[in-house]
């Protein structure tokens, strides 16, 4: 039989659990976060024109050749990285162990 319980016993235990546990016992450690998300997400379809005559649509980027010079330059640099010499994330590819 199941290592835990029969259906009847489970029902009983669940009832007790739900009565007693005001917060979930499992690692529900991010409860109630970011309550404002409900209106933060945009509708992505619209009928405007953006960017004007900027070069967003005409710039030629080839990451397979030498043209790609950009490196990630965001918050990843702040993350703890035990495999990098500085202890911080680094910009060059490296093997995580």
């Amino acid at each position: 039989m199941t290592k835990t319980t029969t259906a009847a016993a489970l029902a009983l235990a669940l009832g007790t659990f739900l009565t007693v546990a005001s917060t979930p016992a499992v690692a529900g450690d991010m409860a109630g976060m970011e309550k404002c998300y409900g209106v933060a997400l945009q509708g992505k379809n619209d009928c405007k024109a953006g960017a004007g005559t900027s070069c967003a649509g005409t710039s030629k980027i080839d990451y397979q050749g030498d043209a790609w010079k950009m490196v990630p330059a965001g918050t990843c640099e702040e993350t703890a990285s035990p495999t990098s010499p500085t202890g911080k994330g680094q910009l060059e590819p490296f093997e995580a162990v």
């Binding site: 997400l41 945009q42 992505k44 619209d46 024109a49 953006g50 960017a51 004007g52 005559t53 900027s54 070069c55 967003a56 649509g57 005409t58 990630p72 330059a73 965001g74 918050t75 990843c76």
Partner: peptide
């Protein structure tokens, strides 16, 4: 050209804000 590409990039930036923050 700009509107097609940049509006679709904007759509991705809206879906992936933390992904964007991680790399700038």
């Amino acid at each position: 050209r700009n509107n097609v590409v940049s509006s679709l990039i904007d759509a991705l930036a809206d879906t992936f804000p933390v992904t964007q923050e991680l790399v700038g």
